Amino acid sequence: MSFDLIDLAIISLIMGIIGIYAYYRYREEKHKEQQMLIPTLESYREKYIKERKLFAEKAETLRKKLEEIEKEFHKIKANINNYKWTEDEKEILRNLKGTEYERIFTIIFEILGFKVLEPEIYKDCNIDIIIETTDNKRVCVDFVDYTQRKKLNENYIKELLKGKEKYNCQSIWILTNRFLDDDVEDMIYEYDINLFEFNQLVRFFPSYRIVDDYDENRTKYHNFELLHKETRDEVIRRDLWIKEVEEKLEEIKRKRGKK
């Protein structure tokens, strides 16, 4: 099949008409898009402003919730004397061991207002933690559960004394949840170390129940703190988007004003 000049001319004319139509359609759509740009941007701005308000209100609600939980912390600390050891709790105390025993009394020290520090190396010189008093005095603390009492000999005590000097502590406390043999007690007191046996723990420290309440409150605080931060981030994000839209609107209006 061959084309003569007339056919080619007709095809060229049709293609030209299609091209012109497509061009004007493009110009028309572009014009509509330009005309709709400001209303679209204004619509986005209104949307972001509403969202910002909702997130800001939610953030304020969460902030108040954090304040309430903060008050609970103070309430727990103010009512330490109410956490007396029950007989069941005493039995649990007798059988605490290892990291759980250390964890409970470490948190109790924090609740009592001590600053808790870790030795440079885990159990360095037999020291589990170092506590700092409000007048900046340091105490080396060693937790000895009922399974570890046999390790308390003279070499063990000398290691604690070495740690006392290394960490610039004014004294050493040994906390054990059972009772020690008399000769071991005498040796400990001979080296001027403060010993807290089962009876002293029950007498001078609040029940581990305070740790359960404190941990529960701390978990709630942490969860609400995360939610509050995420919500505040959404507010900040909307602030940024609103600013970007307003800058774009200002730019468009400035350009149109020059035409």
Score class of each variant (00 low, 15 high):
residue 46 E to R: 08
residue 107 I to L: 15
residue 116 V to W: 06
residue 94 R to C: 08
residue 58 K to Y: 09
residue 46 E to M: 08
residue 58 K to Q: 14
residue 46 E to I: 04
residue 60 E to Q: 12
residue 90 K to S: 08
residue 108 I to N: 00
residue 105 F to N: 00
residue 90 K to M: 12
residue 67 E to S: 09
residue 108 I to C: 01
residue 49 I to S: 08
residue 87 E to R: 14
residue 83 Y to Q: 02
residue 78 A to S: 15
residue 66 L to G: 05
residue 87 E to I: 13
residue 117 L to A: 11
residue 81 N to F: 10
residue 98 G to T: 04
residue 73 F to A: 04
residue 71 K to Y: 14
residue 58 K to P: 02
residue 46 E to N: 12
residue 75 K to M: 12
residue 84 K to Y: 06
residue 104 I to M: 05
residue 78 A to Y: 11
residue 83 Y to W: 02
residue 111 I to Q: 03
residue 99 T to G: 13
residue 98 G to C: 10
residue 105 F to K: 01
residue 74 H to L: 15
residue 53 K to L: 05
residue 61 T to Y: 11
residue 56 A to L: 14
residue 55 F to A: 03
residue 110 E to I: 03
residue 77 K to C: 05
residue 75 K to I: 12
residue 81 N to T: 09
residue 117 L to K: 10
residue 105 F to Y: 13
residue 114 F to W: 08
residue 79 N to T: 13
residue 94 R to L: 12
residue 85 W to I: 00
residue 112 L to Q: 05
residue 112 L to K: 00
residue 70 E to D: 12
residue 95 N to T: 09
residue 101 Y to T: 00
residue 76 I to G: 03
residue 86 T to H: 13
residue 58 K to L: 14
residue 116 V to T: 04
residue 69 I to E: 05
residue 71 K to V: 09
residue 99 T to P: 06
residue 79 N to C: 14
residue 116 V to D: 03
residue 112 L to Y: 04
residue 88 D to Y: 05
residue 91 E to S: 13
residue 113 G to S: 13
residue 49 I to G: 03
residue 92 I to S: 02
residue 113 G to C: 04
residue 112 L to P: 00
residue 115 K to C: 13
